[in-house]
Nucleic acid binder design. Sequence first.
RNA 1: GCCGAGGUAGCUCAGUUGGUAGAGCAGCGGACUGAAAAUCCGCGUGUCGGCAGUUCGAUUCUGCCCCUUGGCA
Length: 320
Amino acid sequence: MSSSPAIAVLTVVGPTASGKTSLAIALAEALQTEILSADSMQFYRGMEIGTAAPTPQEQARVPHHFVSCLAPDATMAAGEYERMARREVARLNAAGKIAVVVGGSGLYVNALIDGLFPGPIRQPEIRTRLQQEAEEKGNAHLMARLRAVDPDYAALLTSENDLVRIVRALEVYETTGQPFSALHRDHQAQTNALHAVQVALQWEREVLYDRINRRVDLMIEMGWLEEVKRLIALGYRDPLCRLKALGYRELIAHLEGQQTLEEAVEATKQHHRRYAKRQLTWFRGDKRVHWLPATPDTSVSQYCTQALALLEQAIESAQK
RNA sequence: GCCGAGGUAGCUCAGUUGGUAGAGCAGCGGACUGAAAAUCCGCGUGUCGGCAGUUCGAUUCUGCCCCUUGGCA
């Protein structure tokens, strides 16, 4: 019976195509532990090529969780992920192991480490109703409603066009009778954050974009189009469009004759580059993340050594 | 070689009857609490090809040069 480690999780975060998967595997091997994915799209089965999920060979090296475990028409939610992932962290910690978490979905990583406020899961009927209302009476109408029940949160939003957030906040208010911002504030006051060490690989922007472009080409070479065709044949065309995983809609548009393969590939690369930029903004904003300078000449084992050293330091200071 | 067209942002181009310039795309920055690979907000980043002349002032007018391009040879 081992005692719980001083650090509960070691995360590998950062933008897409930065090399998270291989670093996480190296770290999990070194720590003799398991990997929890924090990737909102690698959950889905049959989308392994397009989401750059760890390959069967990679998964054979280290046990993985939360990869290829849902049908493409299933819904996931950050709160559900928080519960499932924390259960795995607790199990590993109880065995004296540090959980290695890898993924680029910032909200999911935060849900796991910091926890979300205990709010309701999404309410499809309420959302549909509110969206219809926005369409009929305009976005400003919904924003005015939010301002009336939760002025603090309304003031934080950048625009009345951010319907996703306005609808969610109104949905929370309708379900709980509490303003979204108040629930959020209460939760921050009594946070139960996991003790974590977070690392990310920091590439020069041009090099990262080059890696993204090359990886999309590689995905096509590995049979991404066939993967999409297979999913369509299984009846997942519409769920796939709803998921909005990068590239799938573009490839579907190509398969349905709306654009050339080249156009679809170029659009996909661009969407990945923009996604990487949003991820950089997200993770740069979290001052707990340690950025390891990355270059084409550095090997995974070198990053691994650096990350383990950071982990060692954190464990020492946690034990003081 | 001759005749014509053009050189303005990373790209495609607009424009200034002389007062150092603006669109689209690309790009950059930010926000983010159960849809998050989603969603939303903000920002022109410039030796106006080069040199000289005219002018208070030239990206704009003039001259020469360089480069690209179409046609004729």
